[in-house]
Design a binder for these strands. Structure first.
Length: 646
DNA sequence: GTTTAGGATTCG
């Protein structure tokens, strides 16, 4: 086992051969140099905030680093440092080798490498994780994948796609037919190619004709294009989307021509131009495959272009008619302060809602939009109970329902089972019978749990109560720290129906999930009785209760002039508001605060002009609805301004 | 253990 030393980029000296770790800031995929070798240039950076330009050569393109995108984490062994124009420059030295990791935090620790064996210790793993984290927080390098549906005219971008067919056009160009599962919204320039000259499955070419785009590949890239196998997943770097009108004129001679989009990979290696074959197991290909599959199933179900268009339009709603258009006024307003702030991803570029709608889920976006409406309007309806186990969501039981259930328990307790209840002390509690103070004036049984240290301090005591009404429960919850409503309808003391809170602790009402709980007799609490305080989670566990969590669930209707969509706020809503959902239920001041916040974000009785802008992170995902797939959006990593520290 | 390239848009 060799002890490799990795030099931080700010400690590098001329004339030595070293090993380094870094994050890719720029790269040119391997291309044939004018000499005998293939060449790849890579610029890396590291937390020392130094960069290093590396020029790597090899007679075998496969020996050069398989970098897929900016942000990948690399480990280079044996690079020689030299001076070039008063800067350090690294050249691959004899025995050069590399490991390349996806730059995504939490992605599998599986490097791409041509080495048959390599050393990778726990320290190496830590280094990669650190670099991933560093690059994702400190550095503006990760750019989202641009899909064909979101391509803008005159744009240069990297296209992640699958090769459907290819053909040699002439001596200067090769045609690649590719798709990424989304439909390019622009009219496309179709290269007139003879079906016989096309290499690829004719059925696929026909079936996907409305989803594929033609890419013309020129000059030095022809060799790489010719070597590609149909079906491979590719990244075409620095592809140029051009709007061209001349082709049409040449053909039809008519003057009212529609500009068509043409995709070109120009000659040269500027801006890392080139084609990379992606391995099937990398994260981007996994995502691509999902996108292809969902497009394919939609295609098969319906056949043809119309339904496909409908599918891509399902989540789109007509934009706000006027006033909120993507005009100069909008640009001006974009400079206004936001009523919300991001807790992460500040380096990501802001997308318009139309771009969000055009992107295939799952995807994360940073947006800037106005909250034109929200639901539910009655804020108390926005708090629900959520079971983290079965993921079900339910309403908080209303007072009437709880009161009804408690009265059922009262009547059956006092009549059928025990007409004249006698105090039944157990080892771990003392029992007393109280006359209820409400209008029914019936008896309630209170079992006071014995504790070692704290005696007779109601706010620190736990009581088990039988035969209480809702109003008595309320009153008792103001005096006693913990109350467990019970019934002795059976032989032993047990919990009630789970629509009744199983525990009221410090004024908070706690419920259990009916599906996921296995309620135990109250005697299960006995082993706890000497403990000083009874924790909610401990009580729940011992009693076999799966706790329900209080959560906010709200629907935000967002609009930025380019489009509108509904986004859910719930998973991170407590953080968003800086308010606990469980507290807001029992605290009037917090309810007022919540109302104030919502009135700020979406002022009542004002049009869109009166609404402040909100900066938000939203993510898109598919939800199965019967046999259909529905696109949903959710707000994340966003808080209201002023709540950043909460 | 030589050279190649040494980031920085095409011109089809």
């Amino acid at each position: 086992m060799q002890d490799y030393i990795y030099v931080p980029l700010n400690k590098i000296k001329d004339g030595v051969t070293v090993n380094v770790y870094g994050v890719v800031k720029f790269f040119k995929p391997p291309y044939r140099s004018k000499g005998t070798d293939f060449c790849s240039t890579v610029t890396i950076v590291d937390p020392s905030n130094e960069k290093l330009n590396c020029v790597l050569f090899s007679g075998n393109a496969d020996q050069l680093p398989k970098i897929y995108k900016v942000g990948d984490v690399v480990r280079f062994h044996r690079i020689k440092i030299q001076e070039y124009y008063q800067e350090h420059q690294a050249i691959s030295a004899p025995g050069f080798s590399s490991l390349i990791f996806d730059g995504t935090v939490g992605a599998p620790m599986k490097p791409r490498t041509s080495s048959k064996s390599y050393q990778f210790t726990a320290t190496d793993q830590q280094t990669v994780e650190e670099l991933r984290r560093w690059a994702n927080t400190k550095f503006v390098i990760h750019t989202p994948i641009i899909k064909l549906s979101a391509v803008k005219p005159a744009e240069y971008f990297d296209l992640t796609c699958q090769l459907i067919a290819k053909a040699v056009v002439d001596r200067s160009a090769v045609l690649l037919k590719v798709w990424d599962g989304t439909k390019c919204p622009h009219p496309l320039w179709q290269i007139p190619a003879d079906m016989n000259a096309l290499e690829g499955d004719p059925a696929d070419i026909q079936r996907l004709s409305k989803l594929t785009v033609d890419v013309l590949v020129y000059d030095n890239h022809i060799e790489a294009a010719n070597a590609l196998k149909v079906g491979t997943y590719l990244r075409i770097h620095n592809i140029h989307a051009m709007l061209i009108t001349s082709h049409n004129e040449k053909q039809s001679g008519s003057l009212d021509t529609v500009p068509e989009m043409e995709f070109t990979l120009h000659g040269g290696t500027s801006y890392g131009r080139g084609i990379t074959v992606l391995l099937g197991d990398c994260g981007d290909v996994q995502q691509l495959k999902q996108s292809l599959e969902s497009a394919l199933s939609a295609n098969q179900d319906s056949m043809g272009d119309r339904t496909l268009l409908e599918m891509f339009n399902t989540s789109r709603k007509p934009s706000a008619p006027e006033g909120a258009g993507a005009s100069a006024a909008c640009v001006e307003r974009c400079h206004q302060e936001s009523a919300t702030v991001l807790t992460a991803h500040q380096h990501i570029k802001t997308s318009s809602l139309q771009e969000v709608l055009d992107q295939t889920p799952p995807h994360k976006h940073r947006i800037r939009a106005k909250l034109v409406n929200y639901e539910p309007k009655a804020l108390y309806q926005s708090v629900k109970l959520y079971c983290p186990k079965c993921r079900s969501l339910q309403e908080i039981p209303d007072d009437e329902h709880i009161d009804g259930l408690l009265q059922d328990v009262c009547s059956s307790d006092s009549t059928a089972v025990d007409p004249d209840p006698q105090p039944r002390d157990a080892l771990w509690y003392e029992t007393t019978i109280w006359e209820a103070e409400d209008e029914r004036r019936h008896r309630i049984t209170v079992h006071l749990v014995k504790t070692d240290r704290v005696r007779r301090t109601p706010e620190l005591s736990t009581i088990l109560v039988e035969g209480v009404s809702l109003s008595e429960l309320r009153r008792l919850s103001e005096r006693f720290g913990s109350i467990i409503p019970t019934t002795s309808r059976t032989e032993c003391l047990t919990l009630n129906d789970l629509s009744i809170p199983f525990l009221i602790q410090n004024g908070k009402w706690h419920y259990g999930c009916k599906h996921c709980s296995d309620p135990q007799p109250l005697d299960a609490l006995q082993p706890l009785s000497s403990a000083e305080s009874w924790e909610l989670s401990v009580i729940a566990e011992v009693l076999g209760i799966q706790l329900l969590r209080y959560v906010f669930v709200m629907k935000f209707m967002l609009d930025d002039g380019s489009g509108s969509l509904d986004a859910l706020l719930w998973d991170e809503a407590e953080r968003f508001f800086g308010i606990s959902a469980a507290d807001v239920v029992i605290n009037d001041a917090l309810q007022n605060e919540l109302t104030r916040i919502m009135d700020t974000l979406c002022p009542p009785r004002t049009g869109p002009d009166g609404c402040p802008w909100l900066e938000c992170c939203i993510k898109s995902y598919y939800v199965k609805e019967g046999s259909e797939q529905k696109i949903c959006y959710q707000v994340f990593d966003t808080v209201i301004a002023g709540a950043e520290g909460i």
